[in-house]
Design a protein around this nucleic acid. Structure first.
Length: 293
DNA sequence: CAGATCAGCGGGGTTCCCTC
DNA sequence: GAGGGAACCCCGCTGATCTG
């Protein structure tokens, strides 16, 4: 991989049609990180290595000037997407009854201690979820759960559509997936009311859409939507339970509760401006990628 | 009672697919 | 290639409920 000063300089590079970056540039730390673990293979790397060997004499080794990337550092620092803690080749599919039982047993444990982080272990993949927002002690559960058309009425009050969607996002394989993947995982929850017809299914889709919407405007959001790849990414996918609990209490009662104003999105025309997309050709400045299915 | 949180709603924008 | 429709996300507003 090499840096180009601008896009035009990169036109000579070759990338496979199904190109996905294998290294990520951490602008905050100014380091490159290998993010291809589990996805790399000689089949992908050999053509690139051959091309490099054939063309290395004509390639520039110049680095991006600080004034090109430097001015963007502050913005990017908040946009860094961590790689998953572990990888899985499992893809989302409807759960069998035994899989549902297994998940529900774990989910029960997770919500027995809502003030603690929890690690779901399914399909050989570990998904760590943080404590439920706003819960800092072992609750007595006296509060009544708010009514919700898609949730069962006899559930703890702190089990909301937001918490369930957050768990479903956390359980996405490698922390990435589509909205329908999230819906599929959500259906395994014991707190979701049975979907009786296709109308209820559509309703679930729009409810999840709204929940994802709200989740990614939170302070320290747990999800981000990757527009080019049309995937939702679990931003906390590399945190462990200790980190979750530490951050939970930092933001908890007595902690820093200064609410960050909702990040105003760039105007769409601006966000899509190709001139603003200065990422090096083979480096993910933003999301990590997984192979196209 | 005020503020925070959760959730629903609807208009607007973008992208993709299909048809002509 | 242009146009239309569908699907989806973006964003602000509002109301219900809970908490201190």
């Amino acid at each position: 991989a090499r840096h180009c000063k601008d896009n035009s300089e990169c036109k000579g590079d070759v990338q496979p049609a199904d190109f996905v970056p294998y290294i990520e540039y951490k602008s905050m730390l100014r380091v490159y990180q290998w993010i291809g673990a589990g996805r790399d293979s000689d089949g992908h790397l050999e053509p690139l290595a051959q091309f490099w060997l054939a063309n290395k004499s004509s390639m520039s080794s110049e680095w991006i000037e600080d004034d090109i990337l430097g001015s963007r550092l502050e913005n990017e620092e908040s946009d860094i997407i961590p790689p998953p803690r572990c990888y899985t080749s499992w893809t989302v599919q409807p759960a069998t009854d035994s899989e549902k039982d297994m998940y529900r047993a774990q989910e029960k444990l997770r919500y027995e201690k809502p003030h603690k982080a929890y690690t779901f272990r399914m399909h050989g993949y570990e998904s760590v979820v943080g404590p439920v927002k706003g819960i800092y002690t072992q609750q007595t559960g006296l509060n009544k759960a708010r009514g919700h058309s898609l949730l069962v009425p006899d559930r703890p009050a702190y089990v909301t559509i937001l918490s369930l969607v957050r768990d479903a996002v956390a359980r996405l394989p490698n922390g990435e997936g589509t909205r329908s993947d999230i819906c599929e995982l959500l259906k395994e929850s014991q707190y979701l009311a049975p979907l009786i017809n296709s109308t209820a299914e559509n309703n679930l889709n729009s409810v999840v859409s709204g929940a994802l919407d709200r989740l990614h405007y939170e302070n320290d959001p747990c999800v981000k939507y990757d527009t080019p790849r049309k995937l939702w990414i679990y931003l906390h996918r590399n945190r462990n339970e200790e980190e979750f609990e530490r951050m939970h209490h930092l933001n908890g009662p007595g902690g820093n509760k200064i609410k960050k104003p909702a990040p105003r999105r760039q105007s769409r025309a601006k966000a899509k401006d190709p001139l603003n997309m200065k990422g090096p050709p083979n480096v993910a400045l933003e999301p990590t990628s997984s192979p196209t299915k």
